[in-house]
């Protein structure tokens, strides 16, 4: 898939971090980019201004809001060629202390966001005969993590969802997953920034959002790749 001046890409959770870097990279390649955000309006607007795209506020855990988001993007920018489900939340919390609401909200955003987005963008992509969807999971889904059970469960579920939808939506639509290791974003806990932690990473440093964006855009455009899980993680996961 090569960008034409009309190609549209939607990135959820794009007001900062990996989502922002992905929006910037897509824009540099010529895509018209829709920047979704939930709370950080200033961030969303500034990314949109920087990349010549448009910012859209929507809560991806709300199916009706996602329907409205996609309808607005397609009406204003055009049919979506690439959809990146990136919006996510993370909390460090011990199993016994996870509240029902924390569990529910983490699943609804981190897993539901991808489901809600796919069910709305897929019909149009299928009708047009092509489309590419990328879910942003986490390396923690592959190796587990201490005190992050809702996050890890939701991100692992995202991998199962991606593999199922890759089978189901082929051959018109490709669905892939990127599972980043520790990356320098606001979501990264302080415990994963110090020298003790990075010393244990084979490549001796945490990742940069731009490096993950490169993997996301690469897999989004890879014409014979579907159902794949790429994990740029500095060697944290070698299996």
């Amino acid at each position: 898939m090569t960008a034409t001046p009309d190609s549209v890409a939607l990135v959820t959770g794009a007001s900062g971090g990996i989502g922002r870097a992905t929006a910037e990279r897509l824009a540099a390649l010529g895509y018209r980019v829709a920047i979704n955000y939930l709370t950080n309006r200033a961030g969303g607007e500034s990314v949109a201004a920087a990349v010549g795209g448009r910012a859209y506020r929507a809560d991806v855990s709300d199916p009706a809001a996602v329907e409205e988001l996609v309808a607005r993007v397609e009406a204003e920018l055009g049919p979506i060629a690439i959809a990146v489900s990136n919006a996510g939340i993370y909390q460090q919390v011990a199993l016994e202390d996870v509240t029902d609401e924390q569990w529910r909200r983490t699943l609804r955003i981190n897993l539901g966001g991808a489901f809600h987005l796919t069910r709305v963008v897929a019909p149009g992509m299928r009708r047009r005969g092509e489309g590419s969807i990328v879910f942003v999971a986490s390396e923690l889904a592959l190796v587990g993590s201490d005190r992050a059970s809702p996050y890890v469960a939701a991100k692992a579920a995202l991998i199962g969802l991606g593999r199922s939808l890759a089978r189901e939506l082929a051959p018109e639509i490709r669905v892939n997953v990127v599972a980043p290791g520790p990356v320098d974003t606001p979501l990264l806990p302080d415990s994963e920034r110090g020298p003790a932690y990075t010393a244990a990473i084979p490549l001796r440093r945490i990742g940069r959002p731009e490096e993950i964006a490169a993997a996301i855009v690469h897999i989004a455009e890879a014409p014979w790749t579907t159902g794949a899980v790429y994990s740029p993680n500095g060697g944290v996961v070698i299996q």
Binding site: L95, A141, V152, A157, G160, S164
Partner: peptide, 21 residues
């Protein structure tokens, strides 16, 4: 089987998270 597969893949993540924790 998107819901079923997602839920069952999620259990693999839950297994890995809780095993460490």
């Amino acid at each position: 089987a998107s819901a079923y597969a997602a839920s069952k893949a999620g259990l693999v993540g839950l297994t890995r998270a809780l095993a460490r924790e």
